[in-house]
Simulated assay, not measured.
Amino acid sequence: MIRHVLLIKFKEYSEVSEIVKLKSLFESMPEKVEGVVSVEWGVNDSPEGKNKGYTHSVLMTFTDENGRQNYLPHPEHEALKDVFRPLIEDIIVFDYQA
């Protein structure tokens, strides 16, 4: 399995309704894209104050490399990015083998 971790810093003016829409799009990926096993959406609640402005995370799990390669160019991923890009100030993407 491959874990795909996103740490997200939204622009200050991002509408809550757009962030909620984005969350729904991410959470629908396992039903829409073969090879996406699961998606977790989280909001930072660490008391340490070391998040450097990153407020949200997404943890996606792919079945394997084929699953990841199916997702990256997939039309559903492209549609998600159309909603996502205008909202983000910065993002960290980190993948690893589980």
Rank of each mutant, 00 (worst) to 15 (best):
L7C: 15
D90T: 10
Y71C: 02
M1Y: 12
A79H: 01
R68D: 01
L87P: 06
V36H: 00
E27K: 11
L22R: 00
G49F: 07
D90V: 10
G42N: 15
Y96A: 09
D95W: 05
D45Q: 12
K32H: 12
Y96G: 07
D90F: 12
F26K: 04
Y13V: 02
Q97T: 15
Y54W: 08
G35M: 04
I19P: 03
P86L: 01
E65C: 01
Y71H: 07
E34S: 14
Q69D: 15
Y54C: 05
S17N: 08
T61N: 04
R85S: 07
M60E: 00
K81Y: 05
I88L: 11
Y96R: 11
V58Q: 03
I19A: 06
L22N: 02
I8Q: 08
I91E: 03
P47H: 04
E78M: 12
E76F: 00
V37T: 13
R68W: 09
E40F: 14
G53T: 13
R68C: 09
H56A: 02
G53E: 01
V33F: 05
Q69L: 14
K52H: 10
V43L: 11
F10H: 04
V83D: 01
L25W: 04
I19S: 08
A79C: 06
D90W: 07
M1I: 09
E34H: 13
V37C: 07
V93G: 07
I88S: 01
E76N: 04
L6P: 03
L72E: 06
T55P: 03
S17C: 03
V83A: 05
D90N: 15
N66E: 14
V83L: 10
V20P: 01
K81W: 02
K23T: 08
D95A: 12
F10Q: 00
I92C: 11
E48Q: 14
L87T: 02
Y96W: 15
E65Y: 06
V83R: 00
I91N: 02
L72Q: 05
H77S: 09
K81E: 08
N51L: 10
W41L: 12
V5D: 01
V43P: 01
F84I: 00
E12N: 06
Y13M: 01
W41Y: 12
E78P: 01
S24G: 15
L59I: 15
K32A: 03
G49R: 01
G42R: 12
I8S: 02
L80P: 06
H56C: 06
I92P: 03
I91F: 11
V37K: 11
Q97L: 13
V20D: 08
K50E: 12
V43E: 13
V5K: 00
A79S: 05
L25H: 10
S17M: 04
N66A: 13
